[in-house]
Each structure stands twice: as C-alpha cells, then as structure tokens.
Amino acid sequence: MKRAIGLLELKNITRGILAADAMLKAANVEIVMSQPLCPGKYVVMVAGDVGAVQSSVRSGKAAAKDENIVDEFVLPNMHDSVFAALSGCSEVKAIHALGVIETYSVASAIIAADVAAKAAAVELLDVRLARGMGGKAVVTLTGDVGAVNSAVRAGGQAIEAGGFLIDTLVLASPHKDLHSALF
C-alpha cells in the first residue's frame, strides 16, 4: 500500500480546527501538521493509505465548507525530500544553481516542490509555508543549472493553471554569501 499525504488550507482558524477533527475521525490517518499560518489561515496535513487520505480530505472539506477552503491536495506518493524541506531539516552543503518558486498558497508550494523534485536531479532546500510572508509560500532548490531550470519550470507549470503561481527564479551562479542569508 502506498503512503499518501492530504492537505486542506483554510481561510480561518476555527474552520481549520473543525476540519482537522473531521479528517481524523473520518479515516485511519496520522496528523502531520495542524496549525495556524499567516495571515490567519489554518493548514491541516494528514498521512496514510491513499483511500484513507482521500476520505479524510473529503470529510474535512465537507465539515469546513467550500467557501472556507483556500487550497487542497491529495498526493498519493510524495517525494521523500519534500518532508525534510518542509521541516527545515534539509542539509544544505552548497548552493550550485538556485531555483525559487513563489506561490499564493501552502498547498500549491508543496505540490510544486513535489513535482520539481520528481522532474529533475535537484535538492530541495526549503519549503517555507506562509509564516511571516502574508500567506505566501516559497520553494527553494539547488542543483546544476539545467536540472534547476527543468525542476522550476515543471513545478511552476504544475500550479500555474490554478492561479497560485506568483513567480519563479533561477540563478545560475548565486553569490556565495547568499547561502547564509537564505538558510
């Protein structure tokens, strides 16, 4: 059985807590994240088998009501490096080319990170989720310039249609001091 990740991003904290409760009651899932984010949004992430996660997200969405949902996803097989980047545990030894994907939602940033990591041989550096950024999220990654270009393009295209993509950036050779300023 595959492990899946499901996420609901909500406009307000009370509906977020309600959704989290409904998600946990609906299926055999583990809560990965359940917390408020800027600017007063709430995010709930669960993990488990694909069917359980799908059921959990459906139940959370129904409890919270569609008008309170900012974004959502169910990823049946998330790339392992996304977990480390989400928790700030990626070991950054050196930045080669630097890629950045900026989004309007937490869910879209995680999707973009997953797609980027699967698209090319890159290292995810960080997936910053809306804290102190007005609800935006940012994915940073590194690798050789060709791989970074491919990964950023794929990650951006994956979320562009939903209107959550703000901008992308690839620096082929970032200044050495930028590394310590970012991480």
Rank of each mutant, 00 (worst) to 15 (best):
D80Q: 10
F73A: 01
V53L: 08
A161F: 13
K65H: 07
D126Q: 13
A161W: 12
A4K: 06
V170F: 11
G135L: 06
E91M: 12
I95F: 05
A27S: 06
V50A: 04
G143W: 00
D80M: 06
A94F: 01
M33C: 07
F83R: 14
A47V: 14
A151R: 00
A52L: 00
G134P: 04
R15D: 14
M45S: 06
L165A: 02
L37T: 12
L171F: 05
V32P: 02
L169R: 12
S105C: 12
A181R: 07
E9H: 09
V152L: 00
M78S: 11
L169Y: 03
S150I: 13
V53S: 03
A181S: 12
M45P: 04
H96W: 14
R131N: 06
D144F: 00
V148F: 01
E67R: 11
I69C: 04
A26S: 03
V115G: 04
G6F: 07
P174L: 02
V115E: 10
L141Q: 02
A62N: 14
V46S: 11
V138S: 12
D21Y: 04
H96P: 10
A121Q: 15
G16I: 01
N77Y: 06
V152R: 02
V139M: 08
A137H: 05
E123A: 09
D114P: 04
V46C: 09
I159P: 11
N77V: 06
A109S: 15
A181I: 13
S180F: 15
A161V: 13
K118Y: 00
E72W: 08
P174D: 06
